[in-house]
């Protein structure tokens, strides 16, 4: 085949252009550290990249929400523990004050302590976390129990999203916990009345109710514990998924620095060679010798 000068220059020009374009692509990858810089770089991977990215963003929200939920649930557990401790002490007093041995004076002192313990239970029932009342249900902006122990909160229990389809209840219906089976506040009032009245029969009745009261609080703690476990698991899962997603995203879109640098070096060497070929192509022809 005849090879002409213009054909030769055209070939050199084309090779230089192709090498320059390949170098540009690798340089872009080297500078940005990304293999995929635009949809056309890997259209077959886009759906997976998008899904991973969306999931990664979701995990950030889940991590934040679950961490906040855990803090609230921890506080809720602590307050229920406080209420339970107070009721345990009330039960101890009820056992001590039952029967005919305690004097009226002793029962009077016990009544004063029970009143203080009731205040502690009421305080726990009206406790809040960062301004949000924990046992007011959806009405978490106001104390759920008034001074008489009447529930003014909501029976609607709001949930926080901590996973793809995982929600935890972060504000409880206080009426279910403190007034569900036995009205704890009314029961304590009755116990105080019985103590003040030196009423042995009334004290015995209260002793029976106290077991139910403590069980109500324990049941609530158990539910909170379950939610805590769910939130904890969700938090761990979100953290783990975030790392896995980041790793997979890295495999899909991140450029390997060593490989990129090596390819870049090869291309630059190739470009230099092409330039030298171009420079030597202007060697003498027959016209130069005539």
């Amino acid at each position: 085949m005849r090879v002409t000068q213009s054909g030769m220059w055209e070939m050199i020009r084309r090779n230089l252009s192709q090498t320059a374009e390949r170098t540009r692509v690798i340089e872009e990858q080297a500078v940005g550290g990304m293999l995929v810089n635009r949809p056309s770089d890997a259209p077959e991977l886009l759906v997976e990249i998008d899904r991973l990215h969306a999931s990664g963003m979701d995990q950030d929200v889940f991590t934040k929400n679950s961490a906040q939920s855990l803090a609230q649930l921890d506080q809720m557990d602590a307050e229920l523990g406080r209420a339970h401790d107070a009721l345990s002490r009330v039960r101890e007093l009820a056992v001590q004050m039952a029967g005919d041995l305690p004097t009226a004076e002793q029962r009077g002192y016990a009544a004063e302590e029970v009143a203080a313990l009731k205040a502690s239970v009421l305080s726990a029932a009206n406790s809040d976390f960062a301004g949000r009342y924990l046992f007011g249900g959806a009405a978490w902006d106001t104390p759920p129990f008034d001074t008489t122990g009447t529930y003014v909160g909501s029976t609607d229990e709001p949930s926080t999203r901590v996973g793809e389809s995982t929600w935890v209840t972060t504000a409880r219906d206080g009426s279910q916990i403190f007034q569900g089976g036995v009205d704890i506040f009314a029961g304590l009032d009755a116990f105080i009345t019985a103590l003040n009245a030196d009423d042995s029969a009334g004290i015995s009745t209260s002793l029976g109710d106290l077991d139910t009261m403590m069980q109500q609080v324990m049941d609530a703690r158990a539910r909170v514990g379950t939610d805590t476990n769910v939130a904890d698991d969700a938090n761990e899962l979100a953290s783990s998924l975030s790392m896995q997603i980041e790793s997979r995203m890295g495999e899909l879109v991140s450029a390997d620095p060593a490989e990129t640098y090596t390819r870049l070096s090869e291309l630059r060497a190739s470009y230099q060679t092409a330039l030298q070929v171009a420079a030597s192509a202007k060697s003498q022809g027959l016209f130069d010798l005539m």
């Binding site: 085949m1 005849r2 090879v3 002409t4 000068q5 213009s6 054909g7 016209f287």
Partner: peptide
């Protein structure tokens, strides 16, 4: 070019 091109 091999057919129509000019070889100087």
């Amino acid at each position: 070019d091999s057919v129509s091109g000019v070889d100087t």
